[in-house]
Design a protein around this nucleic acid. Sequence first.
DNA 1: CTGGATGTAACAATAATTGCTACATCTAGC
DNA 2: GCTAGATGTAGCAATTATTGTTACATCCAG
Lengths: 148, 148
Amino acid sequence: MSGNSRLCVAVHVLTWMALDQRDPAAVATSQRLAVSVNTNPVVIRRCLGQLREAGLVQSRRGAGAGWNLTRAPEQITLLDVHLAVGDDEQLFALHHSPPSGSCPIGFGIQPALRPVFGRLDEAVRRELATTTIADMLRDVLAQQPATA
Amino acid sequence: MSGNSRLCVAVHVLTWMALDQRDPAAVATSQRLAVSVNTNPVVIRRCLGQLREAGLVQSRRGAGAGWNLTRAPEQITLLDVHLAVGDDEQLFALHHSPPSGSCPIGFGIQPALRPVFGRLDEAVRRELATTTIADMLRDVLAQQPATA
DNA sequence: CTGGATGTAACAATAATTGCTACATCTAGC
DNA sequence: GCTAGATGTAGCAATTATTGTTACATCCAG
């Protein structure tokens, strides 16, 4: 394992829902999503819970319930997803235990590094904002093998 | 703990060495560096070992030994450091277990996601390349309290 | 030859992520 | 109302990465 796969799973789920909702009779459940993602339904519900808190999806409870996108796929960027799944911690961590304040470098390194790391985070956010779930759905469908 | 702090520690160490080597008589040892970073000398040696493999520093063994930069601080970018410390794995991970190949989304999501994640990595690398150890040293020294 | 440094293996502690079970809760439809 | 079927969520185990630490082999200036 290396980093986390929350963004990957969330994008998978949203793209799946974007395709699924083209059929008005279709119902997106955590069970069906779990089969596509190849994981446990609870993992999907955890993920969808975060997306719901961010306002990207809605859930209905009770029998025959399921999930819906609250916006058009064109209006959901990967930055929205990224922020929703709480990957918003800094990309690179500072020191675990604070460096020596009595050394010039130890004293100034964190304040000097912070804006650099901030620019890195911003670069990632800028890039994430350029892709939407609609883009993802188009690219995913373009991967399909010829049905001949 | 969240991500790793290897880049932070490596930049700290290199910036320290850049300042230290202004005094020709100074010797950079893992012990002295560990005090500034506030960690164990072995952690520093591990870090310096990666920087040496990347050709950024040299080590001398034996008594009175220590470490040297192999280039001017102006010629070491944070991208060099990033690559040296092996943080080069993808920023965001793909699925742990491969998604369902019999679902259109499961089939195409990884190929569609890969170039997106590649662009993210590239955005980070581009940003990292804009800062050098010399920049860091200047900014660190600018943080010092007035010596009045 | 010896002191002092690097080089490195091995291990413990901590934390994050993921997958899983179990169960409470809700509601459409009978 | 009841019930089937779904969400909501607590809690735990397994895996992994990171960091810190001890211990010891190795090297070399003096």
